[in-house]
């Protein structure tokens, strides 16, 4: 067992997932530790992003898809009929590949979700904006231009704004789907630094095509291939002496 049982916040149990007839995930069982960064790696189409989206029921939005098995978040299956997917997504936030700020002010980007969730009162919202932007290490850069459109920020700043927006909902887990693939190296380094900081407060699960990034930021790494989880291990082990030949072939670039 790679994980410490008492530290697990979310786990999948024998998960199969189908897009119509196509089976995208086969019998995936893995566990994620709290306050740790877990990276999911593997070639395109291996199912890593599908798994990530299953963890906060984002795949519900796709027609004709079907989940088997259980995903237990704090011991409860999030696919039970009486579970509210909106509540799941509040507690398990997501940041996407391309920065997607709302065409609103920086301030309103952050407060949009909390307002819908019932937070009102100027002071509360202001405190929330500052806290979220500080956590996303964006506060110093935008504190004087909070009323301006988020669209004028650079790509790296927009992505950190999206992270701040996710943090404003005070989630437990942050899912990141290739969060730096559209960013330059400096912005990428800032996000990676941020991930290091955020894991003190949040559990982070990140999908990345950049293996050095997985090596740099994560504590655990899962390698996926053709919809199966081939190996799940401590990141250092994966990148120095993985147990499985397929993992070794992939991370050394001997694949396909």
């Amino acid at each position: 067992m790679v994980n410490q049982e008492d530290r697990i916040i979310i786990r999948t149990e024998n998960v199969n997932f189908y897009y119509g007839e196509f089976q995208a995930l086969t019998d995936v069982s893995m566990a994620f530790e709290t306050n740790r960064v877990t990276a999911l790696i593997g070639p395109s189409g291996c199912g890593k992003s599908t798994l990530l989206r299953l963890l906060n029921r984002m795949n519900d939005l796709i027609d004709g898809c079907r989940v088997e098995g259980r995903i237990l978040f704090e011991g409860r299956n999030i696919y039970e009929p009486d579970v509210d997917p909106v509540e799941v997504r509040r507690r398990i936030g997501m940041v996407f590949q391309k920065p997607n700020p709302f065409p609103k002010s920086i301030f309103n980007n952050i407060t949009y979700g909390p307002r819908l969730a019932g937070v009102s009162g100027k002071a509360d919202l202001e405190a929330l904006v500052e806290r979220s932007l500080r956590q996303a290490v964006l506060w110093d850069e935008v504190k004087d231009i909070l009323g301006q459109s988020a669209m004028m920020l650079s790509g790296g700043q927009q992505q950190r704004l999206c992270i701040a927006r996710a943090l404003a909902m005070k989630p437990d887990i942050l899912l990141m789907d290739e969060p730096t693939s559209a960013l330059d190296p400096i912005s990428t380094a800032k996000i990676e630094e941020l991930i290091e900081e955020l894991k003190k407060t949040y559990t982070i699960i990140i999908v990345t095509h950049n293996m050095q990034q997985a090596a740099r930021v994560s504590d655990f790494t899962g390698f996926f291939y053709l919809g199966k989880m081939i190996e799940f291990n401590v990141t250092e082990k994966i990148f120095t002496k993985p147990d499985m030949k397929q993992t070794e072939d992939y991370i050394t670039g001997r694949f396909g």
């Binding site: 293996m211 050095q212 090596a215 994966i238 990148f239 120095t240 002496k241 993985p242 993992t247 070794e248 991370i251 050394t252």
Partner: peptide, 9 residues
């Protein structure tokens, strides 16, 4: 090349 695993070793 930022080698990993067996290449790194």
């Amino acid at each position: 090349r930022q080698p990993a695993a067996r290449d790194l070793r």
